[in-house]
Structure formats: structure tokens, C-alpha cells
Write a protein that binds this DNA or RNA. Structure first.
Length: 320
DNA sequence: CGACTTTGACCAGCGC
DNA sequence: GCGCTGGTCAAAGTCG
């Protein structure tokens, strides 16, 4: 979907002629009209007339603003519905994939036993936290893997993705298929937490960071304020967590013991598709939220009105 | 001084 | 067995 799905430019439909007293609005010639001096009465009448036109125009703009706000909220509603439907569809597809994988697994038990664990568990599910870290390796159970794509500044070499959790970097490696290094992080908030994440720039699109999460946190999110997943600090931009959730929903959420390994890691083709879907999706959400916030904010409308009136006063001064 | 990052060394898995 | 590769360790360095 194109990011121009909603026009965010504030077309206030200001009749600039309104701001230019030299055009349609009756010219104010207070002092002379030929040899004729306006009387104070005539002068007041002219001002009154002009004020009337302005008030009328202001009312028209307010009405139009209301209409636009309504249209925007309808658009948001429709978008949310579509997103919900899309999520449902994705969930169904994932379930189907898992079912197919199960079927294949049953058919070719030998093949899968060589490639992956036989146990159906996909998460650290043991009773103690310590065990939850060790057991997957011992029993050949792979923890749940989430892959998230995050847009980041291409010039920023740091592989830091703030997601609200506390991470300790324990390694960095240049991999074969990607010139940019891969950084390895462990959750450092709780010593017993075994969640790891890998961050690497996408080979296809250096502006995208590929974040792979492994395992499940066994503690609450330490930074509750960090509901937004922000990009590297240098650019200061943030992506709302809803956007990331959406991205995750489109990326292959996989259970290693169910899906053929090739489907999981040979995902270059998938990745390009994912990027095509995700990048505009994030932009849409940003645009949507910005527009929604702006139209709901009374301060913004007040500031807008002030700016318009200020500009009008400026123009008037200039024309005088 | 403690927490965190960097980086070279080491290890395990895999293919040939 | 050997080499390649990804993942991890741990000592040294850095920073607040």
C-alpha cells in the first residue's frame, strides 16, 4: 500500500485572496477616493463588511475542518477493521502452516528427528527458571523465535534497539551472508532470564534492522514507560509498539520443531515481501496517529487558529 | 568501582 | 579428519 493513502498535508483551503486586501475584498481606501475623503461612518461600514466576510470564511473553514476530522476518524475505523481482519487471516494461516508441518512430521518422522527436536514444546516451560534456560538445549528443544523488522537510520552503525527490556551485549560476529555484523544480546534484567536477541542489518535493505528474539521473559518489562520501541538513539525516532506488533505478525513466527528449517531461515524471498508490507504499514500507523492526535488536540486547533489570524494580521500590515 | 562494550579466542555442529 | 560457520566466553577497555 502506498504511503500516500491519506493526505497529511494541512490543506486549510485558505482563500489567500482573503489575506490579500488588494484583490477581491473591497479595497480599503480610507483616506482618498479621488478627491473624496471617506467619512468615519463609511470607514466603519467598510470594516464591518470586511469583518463579516472574515467571520463567514472562518465558519466555513471550521465546518470543513469538522468534516475532515469526521472523515479521518471513519478512515481510522476502517483501517483498524482491516488490520483486525488481516491479523485474523495471518493467525489462521499460521495455524494451517503448523497443521501442515505436523502432518509432514508424522509422515516423515525420521527426517525431522535428524533436523529438529521431537518434543512438541516450543517455549521454556520448565518449573524453575534455571531449568528453563538449560532444558531446551538438553532436550533438544528450541525456544520460541520471533523475528522483528525495524526501520533504522542507515548511517547509524549501532545495533541498539530499545524495546523496554534491559540487554547486555555479549558478542558480535560478521556472518557469511551479510556484510554487516550481527550483535548478540542477553536479557540482563533478571539473571535467571534466558531470553536472547540477535540484531543485524538486513543485507537487502541496510535501513532495516532484523531483530531475532529467542525465548520468553520470565519477568515483567522493567521499563514500563518504554511501550514504544524506539530506534537507535541517534535519530531519536520512535515506532509505536503497535507498529512492531503488526510487523511481527507479518514476519514468520515459527516453531522450530514444527516447521522445516528451510522455511525458517531461507527467508530472503519472504523478507523482501515482508519489507514491502511492513514499511508502509508503519508509515500508515504513524500518519494515522499523528493526524488523529493533532485533530483531537484542542491546543493544536487553537494554535492553528492563532497562526492563521497572525498571518492575516501580518498580511494586513504589509498591505498597509 | 561497577556496569557495560569490544573483540579475539574458543567450541560445537555440519558438510565434504 | 578438516575446514567453515555461527554462537559464546572472557579478558581488556571504556564510561559514568
Amino acid at each position: 500500500m502506498d504511503s500516500t493513502w491519506v493526505d497529511t498535508s494541512l490543506d486549510l483551503n485558505l482563500n489567500l485572496n482573503l489575506l490579500n486586501p488588494r484583490s477581491e475584498i473591497p479595497k480599503r481606501e480610507f483616506k482618498f477616493k479621488g478627491d473624496h475623503h471617506f467619512s468615519e461612518f463609511e470607514e466603519r461600514a467598510l470594516v464591518k463588511q470586511e469583518n463579516g466576510v472574515l467571520v463567514e470564511e472562518l465558519n466555513r473553514i471550521s465546518t470543513e475542518n469538522k468534516k475532515l476530522t469526521e472523515k479521518l476518524s471513519v478512515l481510522c475505523k476502517n483501517y483498524n477493521n482491516l488490520q483486525k481482519q488481516y491479523m485474523d487471516l495471518m493467525t489462521k494461516n499460521t495455524e494451517n502452516e503448523l497443521a501442515m508441518a505436523k502432518k509432514r512430521k508424522a509422515e516423515s518422522e525420521d527426517y525431522y528427528s535428524n533436523m529438529i527436536g521431537l518434543n512438541g514444546h516450543t517455549e521454556c516451560s520448565s518449573t524453575s527458571d534455571e531449568e528453563s534456560c538449560k532444558e531446551p538445549k538438553e532436550n533438544n528443544i528450541k525456544p520460541k523465535v520471533y523475528r522483528v523488522y525495524v526501520r533504522a537510520n542507515a548511517s547509524d552503525s549501532t545495533l541498539i534497539v530499545k524495546d523496554g527490556y534491559q540487554w547486555r551485549k555479549y558478542g558480535q560476529k560478521v556472518t557469511k551472508d551479510n556484510p554487516s555484523p550481527r550483535a548478540y544480546f542477553k536479557c540482563s534484567f533478571a539473571p535467571s532470564c534466558c531470553v536472547k536477541k540477535k540484531v543485524q542489518r538486513s543485507a537487502a535493505d541496510p535501513s532495516m534492522l532484523v531483530v531475532t528474539y529467542e525465548g520468553k521473559h520470565n519477568h515483567p518489562q522493567p521499563d514500563s514507560k518504554a511501550e514504544q520501541l524506539s530506534l537507535s538513539p541517534s535519530n531519536g525516532a520512535t515506532i509505536p509498539i503497535s507498529a512492531v506488533t503488526l510487523m511481527r505478525s507479518t514476519s514468520p513466527t515459527v516453531n522450530l520443531d514444527m516447521i522445516q528449517p528451510g522455511l525458517l531461515f531461507d527467508d530472503d524471498a519472504k523478507r523482501s515481501t515482508i519489507q514491502e508490507i511492513e514499511a508502509p504499514a508503519v508509515q500508515q500507523i504513524l500518519v494515522q496517529q499523528m493526524a488523529s492526535n493533532l485533530t483531537r488536540d484542542p491546543n493544536f486547533t487553537a494554535a492553528l487558529a492563532a497562526a492563521i489570524s497572525g498571518r492575516f494580521v501580518d498580511q494586513k500590515k504589509k498591505s498597509n
